[in-house]
């Protein structure tokens, strides 16, 4: 039988996606998150007010609500959804020994790491897109109508400006989530046990604060993105390049780590 020249990325992604979506925990985490999105919509309807940060509140309307929906949900994402998914995907199958079945095949282990990252990124990206869509639709239906609104740093904007701001906001949020998945991959490389990997990822989020103020975005995602997009200066001004460095660093460390590691589990 012809051994062929290599496994295509499409097949690697399909294989990883099957493993991720066959786990009950993946579905449980996604469903819980979606329920929280709907509850948060209800909560915003009752409050009609949200916050850029601890010092700046804002009255919500049909144009500015979508970014504020992610305010509490980003905490759920960073402290529950991503650590659980990353610990399962990067650590669970390694820890149980089942990933050996994939590791002995003629595939690049560096690519396997990147594919795991990509598949989790697509899942988290889907949840982020759902949050944006739910926030946009819900705001149009249930929040006070407005033809113009004021957004931090963007000034007064109309319908299209508000839509662009919310897309930019969710785009940066997705980059933060992708970076945290990458961090999860590196942490699980060091401690494959899923429980320890989960704790390790939380330790990085909290411990980041003690390393540098610039890493506060892992803890308070929406505050940092509002400050970054609003160009208010301070430690969040460096969010862009720190995210790029974090993504590149995790990609390099993770890929080399998976290529060179000893698989004793």
């Amino acid at each position: 039988m012809n051994k062929g020249s290599g496994v295509g990325m499409g097949n690697l992604i399909r294989s990883e996606a099957q493993r991720v979506f066959k786990r009950k925990r993946t579905w449980a985490v996604a469903i819980v998150y979606i329920v929280f999105v709907l509850l948060e919509c209800l909560f915003l309807t009752m409050m009609n007010t949200s916050f850029y940060d601890a010092e700046h509140s804002v009255a919500l309307n049909s144009l500015n609500t979508a970014p504020f929906l992610l305010r509490e949900l980003a905490i759920l994402m960073n402290f529950v959804v991503i650590p659980m998914l990353a610990a399962d995907s990067f650590g669970g199958d390694v820890s149980s020994g089942a990933l050996r079945l994939a590791l002995i095949r003629p595939i690049s282990r560096g690519k396997l790491f990147l594919v795991k990252w990509l598949v989790l990124g697509m899942l988290v990206g889907g949840l982020t897109l759902f949050t944006w869509a739910a926030g946009t639709v819900f705001a149009g239906i249930a929040m006070p109508p407005a033809s113009e609104t004021t957004l931090m740093g963007a000034g007064a904007v109309g319908r299209m400006g508000a839509l662009g701001f919310s897309l930019g906001f969710y785009g940066v949020a997705l980059c933060v989530f992708l970076a945290l998945i990458g961090v999860g991959g590196v942490v699980a490389r060091l401690v494959p046990n899923p429980v320890l990997a989960y704790i390790g990822i939380l330790a990085v989020i909290v411990g980041g604060l003690y390393v540098s103020d610039a890493l506060v975005f892992l803890l308070s995602v929406s505050d940092s993105i509002f400050h970054f997009l609003g160009r208010t200066g301070g430690s969040d001004a460096s969010l862009g390049w720190i995210l790029c460095a974090l993504l590149a660093g995790c990609a390099i460390i993770g890929t080399l780590g998976w290529q060179r590691r000893e698989w004793n589990q």
């Binding site: 039988m1 012809n2 051994k3 062929g4 020249s5 290599g6 496994v7 295509g8 097949n11 690697l12 399909r14 294989s15 099957q18 493993r19 066959k22 786990r23 009950k24 199958d93 149980s96 020994g97 089942a98 050996r100 079945l101 994939a102 002995i104 095949r105 003629p106 595939i107």
Partner: peptide, 28 residues
């Protein structure tokens, strides 16, 4: 088979094989 035969326990036997078959260049 290295050490004990451990599989992805959340899949059926066939699912396990179809999943792993994706990782063979001669089964495109």
């Amino acid at each position: 088979i290295v050490e004990s035969p451990i599989f992805f326990p959340y899949m059926t036997g066939r699912d396990n094989l179809e999943n792993l078959a994706l990782l063979h260049p001669n089964l495109p």
